Amino acid sequence: MTTEPPLRRGNLLPARALVTAWSLLALIALLAWVLTAGQAGDMGIEPGTMGMGVPLFVLLWLLMKIAMMLPSVAPVAITWARGISRGSTGTVRVVRMTEFTGGYLLVWTAFGLLAYGGFAVTGDLVQEHPGAGRWIGFVAFLLAGLQQLGPLKNVCLRHCRSPMGQLVHYAGYRRGWARDLRVGAHHGLYCVGCCWGLMVVLIPLGVMNVAAMAGVAAVIFVEKLWRLGPLFSTVVGVVLLVCAGLAPSQDWLTPGLQSSDSPMHMN
Rank of each mutant, 00 (worst) to 15 (best):
R9L: 13
E4G: 14
G188H: 08
E223A: 01
L70G: 08
G102A: 15
P55A: 09
M50W: 01
A40I: 06
V139K: 06
L35M: 12
G48D: 03
L27F: 11
S23V: 08
M213G: 08
A218V: 12
F138W: 11
L152H: 03
C160T: 05
L257I: 04
L152E: 00
G188W: 06
A32N: 10
M164D: 09
W33D: 05
W22T: 08
R182T: 11
W226C: 05
G103I: 10
G41T: 05
L24D: 01
L56R: 12
V238N: 00
K153H: 03
H169V: 00
G117M: 09
I84G: 00
Q166F: 12
M213N: 10
S233P: 04
R96P: 06
G102R: 11
G83R: 07
V76A: 15
T122L: 11
A144G: 02
I84S: 02
W196F: 14
V155C: 02
G237Y: 00
S233E: 00
V210Q: 08
W135V: 07
A218M: 10
G193Q: 02
L146I: 05
F141S: 03
K153N: 02
G145E: 01
V121W: 12
G87C: 04
Q166Y: 11
L181K: 09
G215A: 06
T49D: 03
K65P: 03
L189I: 12
V107P: 05
T122R: 12
H129A: 13
Q258N: 11
G150L: 01
V76W: 05
M52V: 03
P75V: 07
W108V: 05
G112P: 08
V239I: 13
M50P: 03
D124H: 14
L24N: 02
G245L: 10
L202N: 07
A115T: 12
G137V: 07
H187G: 05
V192P: 04
V207Y: 10
S249N: 09
F221W: 13
A17Q: 15
E128A: 15
V107K: 10
L142I: 01
L198M: 13
M43T: 13
F100P: 12
Q148W: 02
L142D: 00
G150Q: 01
R182D: 00
G87R: 15
A29R: 09
F111C: 09
L12P: 05
